[in-house]
Design a protein around this nucleic acid. Sequence first.
DNA 1: TTGTACGCGTTATCAA
DNA 2: TTGATAACGCGTACAA
Lengths: 335, 335
Amino acid sequence: MTIKDLAEKTGYGVATVSRVLNNHPNVSRKARETILKAVEESGFQTNSNAQQLKAAAKSILVVVKGTANEMFGEMVETIQSLVAQTHYPLYVDYMDEDSNEVLRAIQLCPEKKPLGIIFLGGNDRNFRRDFARIEVPCVLVSSDGSGLPFDNLSSVTTDDRQATRCAMDSLIALGHRKFVIVGGDRETTDIGRLRYAGCLDSFRKHGIDFDEQLDYAGVRFSYQDGYDATQRLIASGREFTALFAAADVMAIGAIRALHNNGLRVPQDVSVMGFDGLPLGSFLVPQLSTVIQSRQEMARRGVEILIDRIENGGGACHEYIQYSLAQRESTRRLGE
Amino acid sequence: MTIKDLAEKTGYGVATVSRVLNNHPNVSRKARETILKAVEESGFQTNSNAQQLKAAAKSILVVVKGTANEMFGEMVETIQSLVAQTHYPLYVDYMDEDSNEVLRAIQLCPEKKPLGIIFLGGNDRNFRRDFARIEVPCVLVSSDGSGLPFDNLSSVTTDDRQATRCAMDSLIALGHRKFVIVGGDRETTDIGRLRYAGCLDSFRKHGIDFDEQLDYAGVRFSYQDGYDATQRLIASGREFTALFAAADVMAIGAIRALHNNGLRVPQDVSVMGFDGLPLGSFLVPQLSTVIQSRQEMARRGVEILIDRIENGGGACHEYIQYSLAQRESTRRLGE
DNA sequence: TTGTACGCGTTATCAA
DNA sequence: TTGATAACGCGTACAA
């Protein structure tokens, strides 16, 4: 079933059919009705290959880095419902955590010819190296692009460094002085770097003693890695009353590791995560964490992108409000 | 950059370029080398729109129902790596939990012209109503298609009913007699229906008293719904020593609800989940559950599909081995 | 208001 | 071994 078939069936030409399909003007009411009815009956589906081969589909592209990332699933849904309220078609492309999202976008561009791109997650290095080849307006969501010299790349994210500092400040305010950190890799992930920097900011300000070699473990963002890293930290014999995990999933692994070593949370060790996954509030103990506003991040990402598409303008970089949840996995020392 | 540009650049014709690109025979070594080098230099990317517009890409399509489903993320990765070892290109299409996966596949078929389709998750009703319009061999993974009258629809899944029965048997063997169930909707989800049936099988066999009205809550597969349902069950005043949740996420919500009501797991109530999410073994207490072999399910799904594509043959329906994990959230009564 | 005809980038057929 | 050329289904000048 093609528009040609439709044309034959209705007695009109393919151009008229195409016009009806795309809601173009200059079609008689009668033609529109006839053709619409035929479309209905035949269950016609326009072939998007041909469509895009022909011309820009005026679409928006979303590139999601990390299929398993619990943060992104919900955000994709928000983006979808937001974009659905516009007339822009939306393409969502999922990829592995460790693929190069920028190269993928570059690869997709000649095919999809998007008006703009939203990156859900992204790596500084990849952008620095390859982003220059992308010309449409883009928004990097949930990573900070303000350090990147691209006029067509905006970003919306949590201020990881400040949020982490704030989280550490709060633990210090609760009386904690001895910390260990289960963080991300500081070399390869921006998140790992920024959240670690936030910790150091706070530690320095309060004169907290912290040994980067002994008190920090830079690992991957998973339950298992959080668990393993914590085991090593404990095994090394370091004493600590508070553990910060750079992601909730790591915090969960960490709590289990503490438990296995006879350390109770929060009586013996306070644990603070980062992300604010829904899961966290169902755990026993409920996970204290930095809650990122995923909805808001996604919403602003869409808004900025559409504005740049429609009105032009250079890059802008926004931080989204986060909130600190002191729940059950942290406690005031000496109470 | 198109193959036409490539042709000009190298002095060959588009046909030769195309042949090189697709590894076809009847190309001189010299031509192949020259063209390959030009491809390298120019960073040429074949336009898949044009490719698919022209002809069937001999691809395999994966339709994933439920972006947030923790089961599927890992399975998609397995499928990808398995199919990568063949010469079939793979398309993965993600959709909301409540979209109609069969209609989506029907829509995709004329465009992608896949040789076969893998459905990750699926609803009985959707298949019954619309699947007849799909002609290529398909495999439904993680739902049971054996009741469906389609010769081109195979399925690979856990035997939900038997697995649940087995899980309940095990709880009964531990001395439990009073159960409540936080299950899925029995009307709209196959999983809800089958896992409930499994419970009843076991209860009947052992003469366990169970009131469908009072002891069963059919809700959605989420933390919050598991939590809410358990709250209601507790509030209703029913006494029970064991709670079965039809999914691990529900079990987690349930455990929190029990905790909030001063009920300890497993001392006061044993909780058994279903799915075997990695998360479960990091919780405190570790979640007892039915472990579905996601890897194996995905692997068999791919194997069966490729076999049907290459050798034909009718539908086959397989159950994949599951295993019962008695971990820390269940205990023997009276010990 | 409508239809004809061309081109998008690719693959496949055929003749050279 | 190669190249010219006809499709694939659609959008859109341009002509009518």
